[in-house]
């Protein structure tokens, strides 16, 4: 009546009643390595930040794309002179600065949760997050520096 779909594993003699196969450790078992509960609101603020920055970014990014790619001749108009002209106004400086910070932090926080969800080993998780934070800090600082120190007369 019964038929094996997968052939029986050949190492039958390897395990018996007194020597069963090792079980995989249960995920939520309390061990000494289990991290203590955190008692901070970091995750709450992170979650809230994603929602709020997302709403603001919809306006900022769509406006940015519209100005850069659609209005007034499309992408062909974008050049050094165009950027220099825009950054002469504090309004566009602020726009780009806010967009840079929000987009980078929003993306970094999103990737942080992706890494937390998908990285299987603690070491992998740690190093992926370090890489992410380094890249985020570098990009944010570099972008901020450029926006504030931009010199339209550069050669």
């Amino acid at each position: 009546m019964s038929a094996e779909t997968t052939p029986a594993v050949s190492d039958v003699s390897l395990y018996d009643v007194d020597n069963p196969a090792p079980l995989i450790e249960a995920p939520r078992k309390r061990t000494k390595k289990t991290p203590k509960s955190t008692r901070t609101n970091f995750e709450l603020y992170g979650w809230l930040f994603m929602r709020l920055s997302g709403i603001v970014l919809v306006v900022l990014v769509l406006g940015h794309l519209l100005i850069q790619l659609v209005l007034d001749g499309g992408v062909s108009k974008v050049g050094f002179a165009f950027v220099a002209g825009r950054w002469a106004s504090p309004f566009w400086q602020a726009w780009d600065l806010i967009m840079l910070w929000l987009a980078m932090l929003h993306g970094a926080n999103g990737l942080r949760t992706v890494i937390n969800d998908y990285a299987e080993r603690d070491n992998t998780r740690f190093w992926l997050k370090m890489l992410l934070y380094t890249a985020t800090v570098f990009t944010v600082l570099l972008g901020t520096l450029v926006i504030f120190t931009f010199d339209p007369n550069i050669r």
């Binding site: 094996e4 779909t5 997968t6 594993v9 190492d11 395990y15 018996d16 009643v17």
Partner: peptide, 20 residues
């Protein structure tokens, strides 16, 4: 019925077994 069988006293691997 295709059932996922696992018996640690026989093998470390789980296998599918069919029953009609």
């Amino acid at each position: 019925f295709r059932i996922r069988r696992f018996n640690p006293e026989v093998s470390a691997e789980a296998t599918w077994q069919d029953f009609e």
